[in-house]
Amino acid sequence: MRIIQSLVFTLAIISPVVSHAFANDESLTRRIIQDHQEAISQYAQDNNKPLPAIVNYTYGMKLDIAKVIRVSPEMRLCKVIPQLMTYENSKGELNTLQYKVMSDCMGKN
């Protein structure tokens, strides 16, 4: 229950920042990654698991995703941005992937 409360609180804090991304793109990206890592650090601590290193996704990489723990919120910057996803594999080990996505644009119809 504490995990869910922590994640909801984190998402509530991040949502306004993400939906009104007028600040410096790089500082916002660093903040999103930092918030993601803080939430995952808490999850890892609560579940007695080591904090995973961030691994860059490469095309064709074989993934063993049993349970998605957290995906970083999307930024609206109209460009390619880094995204993080943390998941447990079939052995229960935590993994964090960083990959690139084309973000939604603000004011997009």
Results as ranks from 00 to 15, higher is better:
Ile3Met: 10
Ile4Ala: 03
Gln5Met: 12
Ser6Leu: 09
Ser6Val: 03
Leu7Ile: 05
Leu7Ser: 00
Leu7Asp: 02
Val8Arg: 06
Leu11His: 01
Leu11Gln: 01
Leu11Gly: 02
Ala12Leu: 11
Ile13Pro: 00
Ile13Met: 09
Ile13Tyr: 08
Ser15Phe: 13
Ser15Ala: 14
Ser15Pro: 05
Val18Cys: 10
Val18Ala: 15
Val18Asp: 01
Ser19Gln: 05
Ser19Pro: 01
Ser19Met: 05
His20Tyr: 10
Ala21His: 02
Phe22Leu: 02
Ala23Asn: 04
Ala23Trp: 12
Asn24Trp: 02
Asn24Ser: 09
Asn24Arg: 07
Asp25His: 12
Glu26Cys: 00
Ser27Gln: 14
Ser27Lys: 14
Ser27Ile: 10
Leu28Cys: 04
Thr29Phe: 00
Arg30Ile: 01
Arg30Met: 06
Ile32Ser: 04
Ile33Gln: 06
Ile33Leu: 05
Gln34Tyr: 12
Asp35Ser: 05
His36Gln: 02
His36Glu: 01
Gln37Ala: 01
Ala39Val: 05
Ala39Leu: 08
Ile40Asp: 04
Ser41His: 07
Tyr43Arg: 01
Tyr43Ile: 03
Tyr43Thr: 00
Gln45Glu: 13
Gln45Asn: 07
Asp46Thr: 09
Asn48Trp: 11
Lys49Leu: 15
Pro50Ala: 13
Pro50Leu: 08
Pro50Val: 11
Pro50Met: 07
Leu51Val: 12
Pro52Gly: 12
Pro52Arg: 13
Val55Ser: 10
Val55Asn: 10
Val55Met: 11
Asn56His: 10
Tyr57Gln: 01
Tyr57Pro: 05
Tyr57Trp: 11
Thr58Gly: 04
Thr58Glu: 07
Thr58Pro: 00
Tyr59Glu: 06
Tyr59Pro: 00
Tyr59Leu: 03
Gly60Gln: 10
Met61Glu: 12
Leu63Glu: 11
Asp64Gly: 11
Ala66Ser: 15
Ala66Lys: 15
Ala66Thr: 11
Lys67Tyr: 15
Lys67Met: 12
Val68Gly: 06
Val68Met: 12
Arg70His: 13
Arg70Met: 15
Ser72Ala: 14
Ser72Phe: 15
Pro73Ile: 13
Glu74Lys: 15
Glu74Leu: 15
Met75Arg: 04
Met75Asn: 00
Met75Phe: 09
Arg76Phe: 13
Arg76Thr: 05
Leu77Met: 14
Leu77Ala: 03
Leu77Ile: 10
Leu77Phe: 08
Cys78Met: 04
Val80Asp: 05
Val80Gln: 08
Ile81His: 02
Ile81Met: 11
Leu84Thr: 04
Met85Thr: 07
Thr86Glu: 05
Tyr87Lys: 00
Tyr87Leu: 03
Glu88Asp: 08
Glu88Ser: 09
Asn89Lys: 14
Ser90Phe: 13
Ser90His: 15
Lys91Glu: 15
Lys91Gln: 15
Glu93Arg: 13
Leu94Pro: 06
Leu94Cys: 09
Leu94Met: 12
Leu94Trp: 13
Leu94Asn: 09
Asn95Tyr: 13
Thr96Val: 02
Leu97Asn: 00
Gln98Phe: 04
Tyr99Leu: 05
Lys100Leu: 10
Met102Ile: 13
Ser103His: 10
Asp104Ile: 08
Asp104Arg: 10
Asp104Cys: 10
Asp104Gln: 07
Met106Trp: 14
Gly107Ile: 03
Asn109Cys: 06
